[in-house]
């Protein structure tokens, strides 16, 4: 039997009568890189918000590692090792790069509520933080204030901060959006590297990235699942091709 780490059943979200996500049954297999694609406004980000509990669903259930997490607080879900990123880059801009990663590491010290302790007590995390930064090629930026870094580097920092939690599953919402060619390659390599022993669910508009990174693809249009399968299967599906007419041409994506 296949081991699904994340499973939604009949997941539905209505915003004042408008159905943004409609009866989505998503199954993500443990250890794979799974893509969620679809035109703008298809409901991809909303699915992310639902499964990570940032929004309550109108109907349906969410199961993570076999447990029903439908009614859990988002921070609790995160602590299960199910960590999301955001469509817009999500860093702490006025903290240094090192401090950003330390925020991710800090919880395991169990001192996050200790307002009477010196912040110097966090220095014992520095080696670990540095190792994470070096893993994403940011070692030389450790002391930089995050806001001063270029955009592509901020996305790398987000991944490093997420990795600090040693998550079993990561959600990435358009990790290459707004990036130049070089940055895209760097992030793709990074995602491939961190996908070892982890499950990744990612929203991605760049189909060549999807084609050479993802094991499985779910296509969402107007809130519903239109198709699911490997890249080869999905890209032959006439309905999918139709949904993508006028935007990207799926068959060209490989090159």
């Amino acid at each position: 039997m296949t081991d699904f780490i994340l499973e939604t059943r009949g997941l539905t979200k209505e915003f004042k009568g408008f159905t943004a996500v409609s009866d989505v049954n998503l199954k993500v297999e443990r250890g794979t890189i799974h893509a969620l694609i679809g035109p703008n406004g298809a409901g991809k980000t909303t699915v992310f918000n639902l499964v990570t509990k940032f929004l309550p669903p109108t109907a349906g259930t969410i199961h993570f590692k076999g447990e029903d997490i439908t009614h859990e607080a988002p921070a609790v879900t995160a602590r299960r090792g199910f960590v999301r990123s955001f469509q817009i880059s999500a860093t702490f801009p006025h903290l240094t790069v090192m401090e950003n990663v330390r925020i991710g590491l800090q919880r395991k010290l169990g001192t996050e509520f200790h307002f009477w302790k010196s912040e110097k007590s966090l220095n014992k995390l520095n080696d670990e933080a540095m190792a994470l930064l070096e893993a994403v090629d940011l070692g030389s930026f450790a002391e930089t204030v995050t806001a001063e870094m270029p955009y592509g580097r901020k996305r790398a920092l987000e991944i490093a901060t997420t990795l600090a939690l040693e998550p079993d599953m990561m959600l990435l919402d358009e990790p290459t959006q707004g990036m130049g060619h070089e940055d895209i390659e760097r992030v793709v390599e990074l995602i491939r590297k961190v996908s070892a022993n982890r499950t990744i669910l990612m929203v991605e508009h760049n189909l060549s990235v999807v084609a050479n990174l993802c094991d499985r693809i779910t296509v969402l249009t107007r809130g519903s699942v239109l198709a699911e399968g490997t890249y080869a299967e999905v890209s032959k599906n006439p309905q999918v091709l139709e949904a993508y007419v006028g935007s990207d041409n799926m068959n060209d994506a490989h090159h």
């Binding site: 940032f54 921070a75 999500a90 702490f92 925020i103 966090l122």
Partner: peptide, 24 residues
């Protein structure tokens, strides 16, 4: 300037991100 203050600053800077890192 405490571990608590560090998280407080993180929340001020980007609350959704702090939640997604598991902080109540």
């Amino acid at each position: 300037h405490s571990p608590f203050g560090q998280i407080l600053k993180a929340i001020r800077e980007n609350e959704p991100r702090a939640i997604s890192l598991g902080y109540d």
